[in-house]
Simulated scan of single mutants.
Amino acid sequence: MNKRITSKELAKLAGVSSATISRAFSSDSRISAETRNRILSIAQEHDYQPNALARSLNSQRSGLVALVVNSIQNPPEAEQLQYLVQRLQTRELLPIILCCSGYDDKAHLMRMASAYQVDHVVVFSDMVSYDDAIQIFRSARPIIVSSEPLTGKHASHINIDGSNAVREVIDKAVADGRKHFAYLTGRKSSWIDKQRKQWFADALREHGLAFEAEAHGDYSYDSGFKEAVVLLRRSKVDTVICGNDVMAIGVRDAATRVLGKRVPEDVAVVGQDGISMADWECLDLTTIALDAAGFIDEVVRLIERDQSQDPEPERVVLDLKVRWGSTC
């Protein structure tokens, strides 16, 4: 086994400066392919790897990005994270993913990540205190993603607004003669779910309508299926709005397979999130969706913008869109 060497020793072996060694291990640095390949070959021969921690001390940048999420088991979050992680890695930024679900002391979780001197933090989770996140990651200029209106927060904010898309869905449902609406919620403490329900309640109010029934799930397929059986048996609901797509798929299956109802003729089903599975031909779910690519583009843009000196916090509003399917 070859003994590991230092960057200075590698530079001497390659006949280049220490700065050239650093550039060889950075994909966006200006260095000829021949020189880079020669340095990497010698490095491999002597089992050399650059010390990222030492480099971060010199540059005052760690290249780490903390991503605070509810759960990576949640399909929309998993899909967004997959795309975001790929985008970050192409920029030689490494994500630290903090999953808040099932973790009681979420402030401690964030403090653990902040100890690594992360350069950036993006808070997707509505389980954490935004004030805590901003305080704990104050040197990283947090980016908050939320449907909640944030004022007086020294952080950039990506605000998700679904009011126009929801109004479009309700307008069509009412035009189709639907009058009896129910809402299937997810986690009761979720600000996002409360905001989503409020968008629909406001749109129904414009037509002199309101939710006639409500059920409580947990964002899972099983909860959507189980709650739909009870809900549709005990009421004359003709439209079920669900807190996410996974529950909506459960509602659709319960209506057709257990209760013998036709979707959408007897009961319409609407989901929220726009997960890729909802677009499968066998499901073809109508859902309120976020443009995932455009959303991640904005996140990455704010991260890159925050690398400049003392940028002012920025507020970005992204509108949700209706992705029409055969269930409504």
Rank of each mutant, 00 (worst) to 15 (best):
A278Q: 05
R262N: 11
D176H: 08
S101D: 10
A248R: 04
S156K: 00
K194L: 15
A115E: 15
A175V: 06
C99M: 05
Q60A: 15
S29R: 04
S41F: 01
V322E: 07
V145E: 00
R178W: 08
L320E: 14
R323Q: 08
D193Q: 11
C99V: 08
G274T: 09
A43S: 04
V166F: 09
L64F: 01
E148G: 02
V122G: 13
R61M: 14
L84C: 07
D284M: 09
F124L: 09
N58V: 13
D218L: 05
K188S: 10
C242L: 10
L94M: 11
V299S: 04
Y116P: 07
G260D: 00
L184Y: 03
K12L: 10
G162L: 04
I296D: 10
S29G: 03
D253A: 07
T185E: 09
F211M: 02
E206N: 11
A19D: 02
N70E: 13
S56D: 03
L64Y: 00
I5F: 00
D222M: 12
T35M: 04
S129I: 14
K261H: 13
L10A: 01
P142L: 09
N159W: 11
V123N: 03
D171H: 10
S27P: 05
H180F: 12
S71T: 01
F295C: 01
N159H: 15
Y83N: 08
V251C: 11
L209T: 05
N37W: 01
D202C: 08
D104S: 05
Q82A: 15
V246T: 13
A43H: 02
Q89N: 14
A213G: 10
D119Q: 15
S326V: 04
I5K: 01
M247E: 14
A210K: 09
K8C: 05
K12D: 10
A107N: 14
A165C: 04
V122E: 02
T185G: 10
D291P: 00
E312K: 14
M1T: 12
G294K: 03
D105G: 06
D222W: 04
R257A: 12
L93V: 01
M112S: 12
R61W: 05
R262Q: 13
S139N: 15
D202V: 09
N74Q: 09
A54G: 12
N51R: 10
L64H: 02
R141D: 05
L259N: 04
L184E: 06
S308C: 14
D253N: 12
A165L: 03
L232Q: 14
L67K: 03
D47Q: 06
N70W: 01
